[in-house]
Every structure is written in C-alpha cells, then in structure tokens.
Amino acid sequence: MKLKKLVLALGAATVLFSGSVFAADMHINVVAKGFQHQFWKAVEQGTQKAADEFDVTVDFQGPDNESNIAQQVEYLNAAIATGPDAICLAALDTRAMLDSIQMAQDEGIPMIGFDSGVPDAPEGAIKATASTDNTAAGGLAASKLHEMIKAKVDAATKDKPVRIGVIAQESNSQSIVQRTKGFVDAFVKIVGADKVSVEGHDSLRAVKKGAPVILEVGIPAEVKDVDAAAVASAILEKGDLIAIYGSNEFATNAIITANEGLDKLGSDKVIAVGFDAGTKVLDAMEAGILSGAVTQNPVQIGYQAVRLAVEAVNGKKVEDVDTGALWYNKDNMNDPAISVCLYR
C-alpha cells in the first residue's frame, strides 16, 4: 500500500501520533507554467519556504516557456508516474491536460491549483487553489490609471477621442484573461459604457462608433518578446494614445521595450502602468518610465500552494486562498509591505 493510501486509511489517528502525516517522507510535485519570467522564480522561493517549514520535499518544474503546452503535459505525466503525495499545478491549457488530471484523480493524488489554477478541471480533481483575485487586481489597475488620466478622459469628445492601450500576453490562461478583462470591465464601468469603445483583439472587442474613449486591446500571435513588443509599438505610435496597460510582467516588459525606440512614456507623456515586477519593470519604475503597477505576491502563491497540498494529504478540508494584490509606484515601492512582494 502506498504511503498516501496508508495515511488516508489511518486518518485522524495518524495526525495525533505525529502532528503531521510522516511529513519528512511527504513529496509534492509543483508544475508551474515555466521559467521564462522571474515571477516563477519568486513562486519557487515560496514553495521552498513552505517545504522547509513543513519539512516536506518539493520538486518544482515547468516548461521552457508559457507557450509550450505539450512540454508542461509531459512534466505533469512524469510527476504522476512518480506517485507523489500531492501535485500543485498552474495549467497553461486545462483541455490539453484533462487525461492527465483524470489519471491523477484515479490514482488518488490530491491536486492543488495555483496562480491561474486549473479552470474547468473535472469535478473534485482540484482540492483548492492559491491565487490572486485577478479580476479585482485588473480592476485595481484600471482605477489607479483612471485617477491619473481623468482630466484627459473627461475632456475627450467624439471628434477628438482619446485612446488607452491594453497589452496582454495571450488569451488562453485564466489569470491573464481575468486581469485583462478585469481592467477593461472596470475602466468601462468607471467611464460609462456609452462612452467607451473596446477595439482590437476579438476576445474583448465591443466597438461603439463615435465613443470619445477607445480601449485598444493588443495580444501577440505567439508568446514571444519580439511579437509582443511589435504589438505594443503599434499602439504606442498612435497619436491619440494617452495611456497604456500591461497585464503581466511579459506584457509590461513589451511596453517598456517598445518605448526604447519611441520615447513615448512618462508622467508628462503617455502614462504606462503594468502588472507584476522583475528587473526591467522595477528599473522602468525608478526611471519614471512606468507610472505604477499592480503586484501579486508570488512568494505567497508558492507558499500557500504547498501549504494547501500538505493539508490535503493530511485529510484536512482545504479552501481557495486569495493571495492578494497591491498597487505600487516609485513613491512606495521600497515600503516593507510592498518590497516583499517584488522581485528582480
């Protein structure tokens, strides 16, 4: 009988015996979306922090980049084959992983979602998810940006409209979709649905002819730096642009890269706000190129995912955890409550 099955059979009595279920022998596989961005390195730090605290072994893996769905499926299948006590998964594409998820469920391996989680997974397969409320986080970015450009938005007319760019990494991952749509929906609500035309990518397109405010959504065909920078550059070059938003580190970096040859961004130029952190983002913030950003707490995402996995293995009831989001800018980025959430 496998250890995890023995644990389930013994139940509460085992917990009373040792305080945890053979914690030193507990092995948890964490399958992330990749290592392309520094965000995932910070998530890994959180998983190791939990591993040390709960005295468990954690194996952190992910594909080379966030467009390599097939490679992530291979990592998930390899993890299942080792018979871990639990698996934490941030799915690039749930549909591509349904057979693997079902296999883990049939094997009795509890699964915990993190970051974007595992949307539309089979019922009962995912015990809980540790993630940011990405819709609310996107809304926070919209609210803060609107405060900075309110005068220009209020002065816009049918004959002289203003444009706000929205750059997203892609249109599949739930976390990216939610914080992109969360931004768009919140901005439309703040300004008024009759005054905003959402243009660009078909995923959010809601054209309203004659609207004084245009939200233009740009999404690259592939998750490649050069493609994203080209999309951002095309929007930055438009004469009626007053602001632009990037919905994750990748998209924010694309905006910063595009600006290198255009010099469009700044507090007295086009206002740029972003999401997440990383060296390029923080350097742009300090230089005044980026006016603000929303940060998740990537360390807490990794920590909570492993904590939930440990509790699930121990037979405890687990529930989703909102790991939070904060607004930061040049003025508060070094405050202890903010800096702990940032990474380079």
Results as ranks from 00 to 15, higher is better:
Asp55His: 14
Thr257Val: 12
Val217Ser: 05
Leu342Asp: 03
Lys209Glu: 08
Val306Pro: 05
Thr180Lys: 00
Ala155Val: 12
Leu282Gln: 15
Lys152Pro: 13
Arg95Ala: 15
Val310Phe: 09
Gly200Cys: 07
Val273Ser: 08
Gly34Phe: 03
Val58Pro: 06
Asn334Ser: 08
Ala168Gln: 00
Gly200Gln: 05
Val188Trp: 01
Gln72Asn: 09
Ala193Pro: 01
Val213Phe: 12
Gly261Thr: 03
Asp64Tyr: 00
Ser247Cys: 14
Asn332Gln: 05
Val31Ala: 11
Phe275Val: 03
Tyr245Trp: 04
Gly34Ser: 04
Asp227Phe: 14
Val340Lys: 15
Ala23Asp: 14
Asn65Lys: 03
Ala155Ile: 11
Gly62Tyr: 02
Thr157Pro: 09
His37Phe: 13
Asp59Pro: 00
Asp159Gln: 05
Gly139Trp: 02
Leu92Ser: 03
Gly108Ile: 10
Asp25Leu: 15
Lys330Val: 09
Tyr328Glu: 10
Gln71Met: 01
Ala287Ile: 04
Gly218Pro: 04
Lys181Gly: 09
Glu66Thr: 12
Asp240Ser: 08
Ser233Cys: 07
Glu311Trp: 03
Ala23Lys: 14
Leu92Phe: 00
Ser100Gln: 02
Ile69Asp: 10
Asp320Ala: 05
Leu16Pro: 02
Ala12Gly: 04
Ala168Phe: 01
Leu145Pro: 06
Asp331Gln: 06
Lys49Met: 02
Ser100Trp: 06
Ala229Met: 10
Ile255Ser: 03
Asp133Met: 08
Glu286Ser: 14
Val310Pro: 06
Asp202Arg: 10
